[in-house]
């Protein structure tokens, strides 16, 4: 335990001083993306990993967050920091709606996965059709650089924000692993009827999980919009984000505190490695990435975290 604590402190200290050591904006950008996806991967992990409700449509929350803060900023001049809070609320509400419908009707497994996918498509089509979302034209976040405007003049600002979000997500993971609520979610994942027999209100727990998960994703959406200054229905609600945030925790270690962080680091590292190795023929780097994905699943069925566990306590069962 002490060794672990020491390691955590060192890792955190390293993360804090990284901007002073890393002078490359490219690598800073790489770290920002890695941390952002680690954070959003944990958002997915709350519902998909701990509670066992695999979602294919987490872009619903990401997109809702991105649109909420951006629309409020453009139309009502709301400060994006406050917009980020509004994004969390809006995405949480959408989570409540989808969760209420799906869990009320007892959807599980692939049925739940598919309904989230369908909702994401519905949102994408709606965003495409309405005036206030800019329709297919999308929305441009006005370029007004300044930290109070959530448009940092350098990568360092975005880095510390992403780092703060990641630390928050790790804290949420730690809380889930040590709280009654987290234990209830894991009990539901293992056997829902058994959990209910033990007095867990599965419906309420799952609903709370999807709201928390959605709200976290919503913040990620605002982060994205402020970072890249443009969103459209496909960026916001398309399958790209949904797939990426589920890959991250599954590759890292489903339902674990460190899984999303490890997964994000490995996936983005693999992507970058592929680009550097495979040269300029379009697509070859992604072929390599795909192969790497399959190989990782083949040899690390428990995720990257399995590698660490195997070393620490052999035979430790995956929760």
């Amino acid at each position: 335990m002490t060794a672990r604590t020491a390691f955590a402190v060192i890792a955190f200290a390293a993360a804090l001083i990284a901007p002073f050591v890393v002078h490359s904006d490219f690598w800073m950008g790489f770290l920002i993306t890695t941390l952002l996806y680690a954070y959003m991967g944990m958002a997915w992990n709350v519902l998909g990993g701990y509670a066992g409700q695999v979602s294919f449509g987490h872009a619903i929350f990401f997109g809702t967050g991105a649109y909420t803060s951006t629309i409020l900023h453009i139309s009502f001049g709301l400060n994006p920091w406050l917009g980020m809070v509004a994004a969390a609320v809006a995405a949480g509400l959408v989570g409540a709606l989808i969760g209420y419908l799906s869990f009320r009707y007892g959807l599980r497994g692939s049925y739940f996965a598919l309904i989230t996918l369908a909702f994401a498509e519905v949102f994408r089509i709606l965003a495409n059709s309405f005036e206030f979302t800019g329709g297919g034209v999308g929305l441009y976040v006005p370029l007004k650089i300044g930290w109070w405007n959530l448009q940092f003049p350098s990568k360092t600002g975005f880095y510390y924000l992403a780092l703060a979000l990641t630390c928050l997500s790790l804290a949420i993971g730690a809380w889930l692993e040590n709280s009654r609520f987290g234990a209830s979610l894991m009990a539901i994942r293992e056997n829902e009827s058994a959990a209910e027999a033990l007095g867990v209100n599965a419906f309420a727990c799952k609903l709370k999980a999807i709201i928390l998960s959605g709200a976290m994703m919503g913040v990620g959406g605002t982060f994205y919009a402020q970072h890249y200054l443009y969103i459209d229905p496909t960026i916001a609600y398309g399958p790209g984000v949904s797939v990426e945030v589920l890959l991250v925790p599954i590759i890292g270690g489903l339902g674990t505190m460190l899984g999303p962080l490890l997964g994000s680091a490995v996936l983005h590292g693999a992507g970058e490695l592929a680009r550097r190795l495979m040269g300029d023929v379009p697509g070859l780097d992604l072929v390599f990435y795909g192969v790497l994905l399959i190989v990782m699943v083949r040899f690390l069925p428990e995720g990257v975290i399995g590698l660490l566990r195997r070393r620490h306590k052999p035979g430790a069962a995956h929760a």
């Binding site: 590759i251 780097d285 992604l286 072929v287 083949r298």
Partner: peptide
């Protein structure tokens, strides 16, 4: 899920 996704990425980019 991951394996079929990986296969899809490989075939498409190949």
């Amino acid at each position: 899920l991951l394996v079929t996704l990986g296969i899809a990425i490989v075939i498409e980019n190949l």
